[in-house]
Design a protein around this nucleic acid. Structure first.
Lengths: 241, 241
DNA sequence: TCGATTTGTCTAATGTAATAGACAACTAAT
DNA sequence: ATTAGTTGTCTATTACATTAGACAAATCGA
């Protein structure tokens, strides 16, 4: 096996610096309008060259997070990050209400397939039994904030795709099946880099970090009704339990 | 501002491939003992050169996740990832019991400081009032799994550092102050790249992804008793709500 | 034993990442 | 108007990332 003298971890220094500065901003250490330390100071803080810092700042500037002004300094422009509350009664639209003026859900595709072991286990059905699979994404104020894959048991929700297209609301669609209330049974949270497809759809730079949530919702009797795998760009969203 | 023709996002291709394969493994698509697709097949799947794939596999091999055998193929070795349950009664040691044979908590340092705005808000105390700050990390089976910073109000817990060193348990230390029970008021979850210090302490490659949890615990009367900022390597841990 | 398949090693070429230094352009205060 | 401090641009060099091709070494079944 190749000996790895490598120590850079495959993530460029400018990228790590950009992440660190972004964190100071969304974390509240730097408020909107504040001036950042000068490029020279940042370079020393991160033990990097000024040019490397400049590249990090250029990326943040492109995202609208900071803005540089020649002769004056670099300033914080937009420190906003959405918070998505997770709890027993987790509702996507309700949770984000008030944080964005527009909230759009897009259905990308849907199809019938046989449940994989993981899906079958989550939905508590026999492996390889039929499930409806929905692919979707959502945008807040025109910026994409999530990419989700949802599985539902076909036996109970054979035409879920058609109905959700009509109602444009998960809650109402479930209601149309006679499910007046449902609850979150479990949420599993992890993080990873975005893959090529996610990168394109969500408008991210390759290598952006995603928060991944695997959620199982159950009806009033505790029977699983859906299994959803949602990916949120960590730079735009945080999850609040 | 520099025009960014860049499109790689600052994360090397081999790193993204390694992440993708690791995800297939911890996600259950590949079980322990399974043979991975050949290097040639993986190279085509990721639209990359075989050498690039080999580098990704080399990193995973170094982590003990896969192992290559000349002439035979590359096999999944260790698909384990710890799950840390988060809920109303979140207890670190209890939560991980049974998942690792040894669980060690290390106290790195402690000091008195004045609460920043964020800490004061979390603990519901006046800004700049005194707080105890603890730095620590923990290991499961000798592998570091978290790095945490905890703040407590000094007025109520002036000698918390000394006591937790004696009891080696958060629950027992709180009990020694007459707090028989406490609960999790809120948990905020985000993700980012590890910084230099975290990289060293946790034994990660620079650029590793961390799950970041900001947690506030309250006593039986709902009064905040601690604010903890914990960082978990995403490749070793997941959070379950 | 042979041949197909698979991982291991080597060389080479090209583009990106990071460092280094110098100077121009702009701002704000003296 | 001058000066110190800041961002913007340019050139150059070194190390890493990625691609490419060729062949060796080990495994397994026919």
């Amino acid at each position: 096996m190749t000996v790895l003298k490598d120590v850079s971890g495959g993530v460029a220094l400018w990228r790590r610096i950009a992440d660190a500065i972004r964190l100071d901003i969304v974390g509240g250490k730097l408020a909107e309008g504040d001036r950042l330390p000068t490029e020279a100071v940042l370079a020393e803080r991160f033990s990097a060259n000024r040019h490397t810092v400049r590249r990090a700042l250029a990326v943040l500037a492109q995202d609208g997070v900071v803005g540089a002004e020649q002769g004056r300094g670099t300033f914080v422009r937009n420190a906003r990050r959405l918070s998505y509350p997770i709890g027993k009664r987790t509702r996507f639209r309700e949770g984000l209400k008030g944080q964005a003026s527009s909230l759009t859900s897009v259905s990308l595709s849907n199809r019938l397939e046989n449940a994989t072991a993981a899906v079958a286990k989550a939905l508590d059905i026999r492996s390889a039994s039929k499930v409806v699979r929905l692919e979707g994404m959502s945008l807040a104020d025109g910026v994409s904030i999530s990419r989700s894959t949802t599985w539902l048991p076909y036996r109970r929700f054979p035409d879920f795709a058609e109905r959700i297209a009509r109602f444009a609301s998960t809650t109402e669609t479930f209601a149309s099946y006679g499910i007046e209330d449902y609850a979150r049974a479990s949420t599993r949270i992890s993080a990873r880099h975005a893959d090529v497809e996610e990168t394109k759809l969500l408008g991210l730079a390759p290598g952006a970090i995603l928060l991944v949530s695997e959620a199982v919702d159950v009806d009033a009797e505790g029977v699983p009704i859906s299994y959803a795998l949602s990916r949120f760009p960590a730079e735009r969203m945080e999850l609040v339990v």
